[in-house]
Computed example of a mutant assay.
Amino acid sequence: MIVNESDRLALKVFSVEDEEAAKNFWGNAEVMVHCGGPTPHEMLGKVLMSYQACHEKKGLSVYAVVEKETSEVIGAAGFNVASGLEKVELIYHLSKDSWGKGYATEAAVACTEIAKQTDGVETIFASADPHNVSSTKILEKAGFQFIEMKWFDDTNQEEPYFEYQILQDDK
């Protein structure tokens, strides 16, 4: 099920059929070098199904990024939803073949549009490894504001922390 589209990309709810494609981003050590390393291939099916369940339960999740021209799943973008929808975390990971084409920025903007249309979302936040300058540029291009350097226990480091405030006018 497609949840949003941009000029070149479609964002769709993950399905088990996307497991092989997910090896090219979540299962790839080079892609995940700034994100704690790759997900073991045998875990990818569970990850995809958890994101599908999150979308069904909360109406917001991480989605498969599909290149419209080829119909290939080239990455993932969307939201980690901790408890409520008030404050959600934007993530994006694209296969290495898709780097440098503006897809991550396009996907991030498409995700913010989904959040604007989702009742209850007030703030989107994101962080990036301080060595991943490309990711911080993506967040800035997508309209996120740098807030501060912030410590993250899951990565065991201080990272640039960004927010995107959703105004009532955006809804």
Score class of each variant (00 low, 15 high):
Glu67Thr: 05
Lys171Met: 06
Glu159Asn: 10
Val66Leu: 10
Gln52Met: 09
Met149Tyr: 12
Asp169Met: 06
Glu20Tyr: 01
Met43Leu: 13
Leu94Ser: 11
Pro130Asn: 08
Tyr92Glu: 01
Pro160Tyr: 04
Glu89Arg: 06
Ser135Tyr: 07
Glu30Arg: 11
Val62Cys: 08
Gly78Asn: 06
Glu56Phe: 07
Ile147Val: 15
Glu122Trp: 04
Glu159Leu: 00
Asn28Leu: 09
Asp119Met: 13
Pro130Ala: 14
Ser135Lys: 01
Ile124Gly: 02
Cys35Ser: 14
Leu48Ser: 10
Ile2Tyr: 06
Cys111His: 07
Ala108Val: 01
Ile166Tyr: 11
Val13Met: 06
His93Ser: 09
Ala126Cys: 12
Ile147Pro: 01
Val66Pro: 01
Lys23Pro: 00
Gly100Gln: 08
Tyr164Trp: 12
Asp97Glu: 10
Glu158His: 12
Phe146Thr: 05
Ser98Ala: 15
Gln145Ile: 14
Phe125Pro: 00
Val62Lys: 07
Gly27Glu: 00
Ile124Val: 11
Tyr92His: 13
Phe25Pro: 00
Gly36Gln: 14
Gly45Met: 14
His34Ala: 07
Ala64Pro: 05
Ala142Ile: 06
Ser127Val: 03
Gln165Asp: 13
Glu17Arg: 15
Ala10Asp: 01
Ala29Trp: 00
Leu90Asn: 04
Glu72Leu: 09
Val33Met: 14
Val73Asp: 00
Ser83Leu: 09
Gln145Lys: 14
Ser50Cys: 11
Thr123Arg: 11
Lys12Phe: 08
Ser50Met: 15
Trp151Ser: 11
Gln117Ser: 15
Gly84Cys: 11
Glu140Asp: 13
Ile74Val: 15
Val133Trp: 02
Ile91Tyr: 12
Phe144Gln: 00
Gly45Asn: 14
Gly143Arg: 04
Gly27Thr: 03
